[in-house]
Simulated scan of single mutants.
Amino acid sequence: MKLTIIQTGDVPAPLRERFGPYHQMFRAMFEATGGDFTYEAVLASDGEALPDPAGLEAIVITGSPAGVYDDLPWIEPLRGFIRAAYAAATPMLGICFGHQIMADALGGEVRKSEKGWGMGRHLYAVTARPGFMEGAPETLSVACSHQDQVIVPPETAEVILASDFTPNAGLAYRNQKALSFQPHPEFSDDYAVALAELRRGRAPDEVVDRAMASIAKPSDSADLARYIGRFFKGG
């Protein structure tokens, strides 16, 4: 299966040489699952044209420093792309900004949360188990980095991952072909720590310190990545 990775932002410049672009993080994540995937990247936030989603095998929409409410030339075309992909039942995954823009495009509400920054390893309750998450534990611990949240999910989505900080952290859509998560299973621990430290000055020191300390907790990112791989394989 070929995954078309829609890159909607890049690794911050101070970290880019060390960690590479986001689409490579996703390639590494999927390759670690042992899935038989091939890849192409579309740098949407750099102005590359979006393909016809009906002709794609599967779609991944990455994180971004942008918000769904930003007046950027590529965001409205991306909304149309998401709606067309949903209508065509093309398998589609969104992570962080991808999670938010999918919800926004499909009828939900997204905004900057009054709770402030979420970063570091957060613990999420598994609130539902679609077939691809059969056998999932009660909780998953995965890194995140965001201020915006899905406040109201689309009517066509079921919440499958939740926390007190992020009540709508994972959404499975009822067409069984669209899936999204607020946390980042593609982040390595080194990158999560470096990104949290980079936020110092923008986020309160105590939030950054707590985020960096949280990375010492065991990670379930590989498990979430495996569930995503099952989703793309149809079960």
Rank of each mutant, 00 (worst) to 15 (best):
G234T: 11
P21E: 06
H122T: 06
Y22G: 04
A88D: 08
E197C: 10
N175Y: 08
D209W: 02
A194R: 06
Y86E: 09
A225T: 13
R200C: 10
E17G: 04
I101Y: 13
I151R: 14
L15G: 11
L161N: 04
G201Q: 13
Y86N: 11
R199K: 07
I61H: 10
Y86A: 12
D71A: 07
P204H: 01
G34T: 06
G120D: 06
I160A: 05
V193H: 02
F232R: 00
S188E: 01
P51W: 12
I75D: 10
P77V: 11
P204R: 00
Q7G: 09
G98N: 04
E57V: 04
D104F: 11
G35I: 11
K217Q: 15
S113G: 12
Q182S: 05
E109T: 09
A28K: 01
P91T: 10
A85F: 14
P183H: 02
V110N: 14
D220V: 00
I61A: 11
M102I: 12
V11D: 10
H23L: 04
Q24C: 05
V68C: 15
E114C: 11
C96S: 05
A194S: 07
Y86S: 07
E158G: 09
G201T: 11
V207N: 01
A32E: 12
R200W: 06
A213E: 13
W117Y: 03
T166L: 10
R18D: 00
G94L: 07
L43W: 12
A125E: 14
A105T: 09
A89C: 14
D190T: 01
P153C: 02
P65Y: 08
L161C: 06
V207P: 02
D52W: 12
G107T: 03
